[in-house]
Amino acid sequence: MSFADWLRADRLPHIWCSGCSNGTILNCTLAAVEAEGWDPDRTVFVSGIGCSSRAPGYISTDSLHTTHGRALAFATGVKLADPSLNVVVFTGDGDLAAIGGNHFIHACRRNIDLTVVCMNNLIYGMTGGQGSPTTPIGALSTTTPYGASEPAFDLVALAVAAGANHVARWTAYHVRELERAVQTGLETPGLSFIEVRAGCPTNYGRKNRLREVTDLAEYFRTKSMLKAKFDRLVAEGRPVPSDAIVVGEFVRRSNPAMGVVP
């Protein structure tokens, strides 16, 4: 059995644009779930609203496609009511960091036994490319036509500070690393948060000089910096490029968690 067997083949091809990273992230997550040996009948995928949140509809398990920003609150109910179910949450940057920001920090605080995969494409894709809380300063979108002026959220730092047991960041280019990170998340009791930098060629790339899908992949490949290297540069007081995407595992700990089968 491979990860492809977890898909609802009758619903493919999916609605995502050509070159959208969401499909890649879906593959990697399913590959991790498959490697973990989870039973599809005992696994629930939960999501909110947005491009990323369409993912559970393509997976042949029980799946809950909820309201904007509330995926983690719904997932909390599912997991607490039946801790024997395996629950994975797909969410996006607008869903998680903007409208669902409060649920995010509280889910991390409760440290509830969920795995949260955030497809962070730096933009609201479904509604046509508006700026989100993770849009970097200077980036163009339909609501930041002169360049984003608000500072962006660092979701990883937020999750670490709020108390999640496992936090990692990768990009959609790092498929094997991402698969392993998700698998570590599935194995870790407590909340596991994996931020995945995703490419949105249609709405983000087109406006920000990353017009081709392969440009975005190349961008992820060249701008990513392993956390170990980043830490070393900082420790040595050497300069770190401001647009570096620091990837790797940021925390793994075993603080008390909720919703774990005793």
């Binding site: 029980d62 909820t66 309201t67 609150a73 109910g77 599912v78 649920h103 509280h106």
Partner: peptide
């Protein structure tokens, strides 16, 4: 954490 989350959790629980 708020009423929105409350009813969300209740709906999630109901599906189990």
């Amino acid at each position: 954490e708020d009423e929105i989350a409350s009813i969300a959790a209740v709906i999630g629980a109901s599906w189990t």
